[in-house]
């Protein structure tokens, strides 16, 4: 019977180890997914600041249209739009464009722009050397700003891609404590209503 117990304990031990392992694996999927997305350029997640020591090759025979769209996240009152809606660029040529943002509210607010690129197959070939999306943006009440983006399209971009669309969604990242204090009054009045 003790032999029996020992083998039961062994099975339970292995099973529990697998359970713990698979639970950890569930969480490991999060970074793994990011690695996958970055390596294969899936899901349109553009990478962080591009840094390269080699000068990118220019290809003046090809023209790629880069299109910009901007939208606000939920309950984001800022005015936010690209200054130009599209530019035509040659691969390898650094290009600067601006996005306009204005905080029309009476409070200072902080925002974060989240980029996404389509078609996602182009993500690997779209390099940002400077972008407002690398940092949070803080605007005082009523303040407006032109935010720069500098990018280079890689000459290695697949031939079938003619147009890239870069989308930014702007999310409110203001300190929740300050905002909720301001909103508290709204909610109470609303509940009473």
């Amino acid at each position: 019977m003790t032999e029996q117990r020992r083998s039961n304990a062994r099975v339970v031990g292995w099973c529990l180890a697998s359970v713990v392992g698979m639970f950890a694996f569930g969480f490991a999927l999060v970074p793994l997914y990011d690695v996958f997305c970055e390596a294969l350029g899936i899901n349109g997640k553009t990478q962080g600041r591009y840094e390269s020591t080699t000068v990118l090759e220019r290809d003046d025979n090809r023209t790629i249209t880069v299109q910009f769209v901007a939208q606000n996240g939920p309950e984001m009152p800022w005015e936010f739009r690209p200054v130009v809606t599209s530019v035509k660029v040659h691969p390898g040529e650094p290009t600067t464009v601006n996005f306009f943002a204005r905080n029309p509210t009476g409070l200072a607010m902080t925002a974060q722009a989240v980029p996404s690129l389509s078609p996602s197959e182009g993500t690997l070939y779209f390099h940002k050397t400077e972008c407002f999306c690398f940092n949070q943006q803080k605007l005082e009440a009523g303040e407006s700003v032109n935010m720069p983006l500098v990018f280079i399209v890689d000459a290695a971009i697949p031939a079938e891609i003619h147009k890239l669309t870069l989308s930014y969604t702007l999310y409110d990242q203001s300190d929740p404590a300050a905002v909720s204090a301001a909103e508290q009054t709204q909610i109470t009045t609303n509940d009473n209503g």
């Binding site: 697998s18 698979m22 694996f25 569930g26 999310y171």
Partner: peptide, 27 residues
């Protein structure tokens, strides 16, 4: 193999809802 993964995903939800993490929140 998979029930722990379910437990993992609901735990991530719990953290997103109650502890301010952003596993699934684009913002």
């Amino acid at each position: 193999a998979v029930m722990p993964v379910l437990a993992g995903v609901v735990t991530m939800m719990l953290m997103d809802i109650n502890f301010g993490t952003s596993f699934f929140n684009a913002a």
